[in-house]
Write a protein that binds this DNA or RNA. Sequence first.
DNA 1: TATGAATGAGGGTTCATTCAT
DNA 2: GATGAATGAACCCTCATTCAT
Lengths: 205, 205, 205, 205
Amino acid sequence: MTDQSVTERKHDAILDAARTVFSREGYAASCVDDVAAEAGIGKGTVYLYFKSKEELYVAALARDIRVLAGKAREEMESVPAFREKVEVFLRVRLEYCRAHEDFLRIYLSEYGSMCVNTPMGKELRRLKRNNMKYVASVVQKAIDRREIRKVSAPALAATLFDMAHGLVERRLLGWKEFQVRGEIAFATDLLWQGIGTGTPTRRQR
Amino acid sequence: MTDQSVTERKHDAILDAARTVFSREGYAASCVDDVAAEAGIGKGTVYLYFKSKEELYVAALARDIRVLAGKAREEMESVPAFREKVEVFLRVRLEYCRAHEDFLRIYLSEYGSMCVNTPMGKELRRLKRNNMKYVASVVQKAIDRREIRKVSAPALAATLFDMAHGLVERRLLGWKEFQVRGEIAFATDLLWQGIGTGTPTRRQR
Amino acid sequence: MTDQSVTERKHDAILDAARTVFSREGYAASCVDDVAAEAGIGKGTVYLYFKSKEELYVAALARDIRVLAGKAREEMESVPAFREKVEVFLRVRLEYCRAHEDFLRIYLSEYGSMCVNTPMGKELRRLKRNNMKYVASVVQKAIDRREIRKVSAPALAATLFDMAHGLVERRLLGWKEFQVRGEIAFATDLLWQGIGTGTPTRRQR
Amino acid sequence: MTDQSVTERKHDAILDAARTVFSREGYAASCVDDVAAEAGIGKGTVYLYFKSKEELYVAALARDIRVLAGKAREEMESVPAFREKVEVFLRVRLEYCRAHEDFLRIYLSEYGSMCVNTPMGKELRRLKRNNMKYVASVVQKAIDRREIRKVSAPALAATLFDMAHGLVERRLLGWKEFQVRGEIAFATDLLWQGIGTGTPTRRQR
DNA sequence: TATGAATGAGGGTTCATTCAT
DNA sequence: GATGAATGAACCCTCATTCAT
């Protein structure tokens, strides 16, 4: 059934090990030896599946990002209202965080590598961009359906990513004072209602 | 007059060089030699001012973070209304981004190192936390003064950081489709008004 | 009929592949994988026929040296006069060079490995020595038959090898300015006549 | 007096160590660690003076080749007659062989690397070619002065190298039966007189 | 104080060899 | 016999750090 050729299973097992090891100390401080040991295989074997340490790192990260994006997409499409979609988006991310803290450690690091000009960063940038484009399309449809007022869809999508990123990061760091009981509720409420008082504090003109 | 003893000037010059070099290829790929060369001094001299490569990195990053936080604080305090404070907060960050793209490359990487358990991350976490606490206090005052409705002050402060982080990142990456002409206006508008239509699309609890 | 059991044929095919591969980049830079690929068989199979990479290398080289020596011997014995034998000796070598440039690349390297104390060198030294002994015996007979004047037969044989070696090497390197139109004629002429003018420039005892 | 800056002395010391080590087991089987140990310095230090193992190898070889060529040239120019020049040429080479057996082990290996297309081989080819050109010019002058009969100067020069190469190789290998008491005398005698009997055995055509 | 030559631990990568299928 | 996945020893090279000058 799930019989990915043995090869494929080992491929995945190595990625799992990579996630574990890289998340422990970061990319630079980790060594391929440790990944191999964690996977219970020989060091050389790792190189049968991945050309280099960097490729391994990116592959491990990219796999999880794809899974996460897939999960989010799937669940977002299973609910009709945009507000629910947003809640789902945030929830999937927070849940993934709880379940895969190790992945998250690397996922957050990604923000760094993305900005440095390496082939590594390139692939990650591409992935993130695609994910954001999808969310932007979801936003656009909500605007078209008048579920939300007219704003820049890509910009709002980006903001969603920013907020999710923040929530996840703070949960990982365990900064109690910056967490609110219902993070998702807080975020969606903020998004829908804003912080305005309704009185025209809001900039006129 | 402002003559920070020659020593202090060299200290700063090294930090400048570190910023330049680290931003070029990232922490791992940079080497102390290059920092020394960039600073126009001997490699050994670097170690007279900083105990290790890591300390140097953190110091370079921390200095800029402090300057940035100081600038933001200063300017935020020079305007009375909270909305303006928010605009100032975002503007200072975006401006710093423009002026110090090299710093930003590292600043964004910081998000990664922060989540890995190194002494390095620790210091950075502390700094960021303090900055967020300050902004939270500003938020709280705004709430107290009824400038904005009652929300979790730390959570809103955190969200501000998240949004600024996102704006800055996207500007650095140059992702045109996720930028909006008036980023600050977009963000503050979003924050104040939300995306709701006013009609009770909003979940009625 | 000449069906050397399939086994034997594969043995030879591997040697052919080895010659091709080793001549491409030299012994150190070649890898068994490539030899197997060139032979169109599995890497493990190579080890069914040869104990080690080194043995494979020596075997490939030795086979060609034996073939070359056999050819030379055969043709030398087919002509009666010593002068012709010399011409044949040189011609066979030059021809083999043209036909098997890849072999020659390794053959010339052999001079190196011969002088290093490896089992590898030992076998090659033995082979060359035997070949030289044979030529020396041919020389001796020519002296006995007064075809040439009395000189040290082994030394002259060695010199013949040296000259052949040089001719072949320069042809392989393509050093135009050190080639003469009729290399063989030049060499034999030089050998027979010397460079003396006939006038007693030649040292008198 | 001989005060080459300390740097230069270390440079030379490393080359000496390289010669010793490489001659022991050949290029491939030697490792940089051993060269460093032989030189009594740290492994990293080697890399302060030479970019790579290969460069080190070539440098070690090239230095000796240059010294040898220089010695030969100098002494050849100190004697007027061509025959003496030839004797000097061979003698210098044989003497260098006796004094620097370790160099010779590598020098002879050179014949191999020369034929493989590496940057390494390139440099060595260039050196050898230049040396041969010089000898060819010496030959040409002898022809012009009617000291020897008219033959192809480059070809004769090349033959001289071939003969020297053979003499040196056989001495290194210790092949008693292919050595002759007075090797130099044998070679020059052969060169001047040839092996012909004077009677028209020589092909008439 | 400033230097940069020296160091050597460390790690990425290769590849000859083995062995279960 | 044939295979090629797996192995891990080996080795080149880097670079943070030290220290004698």
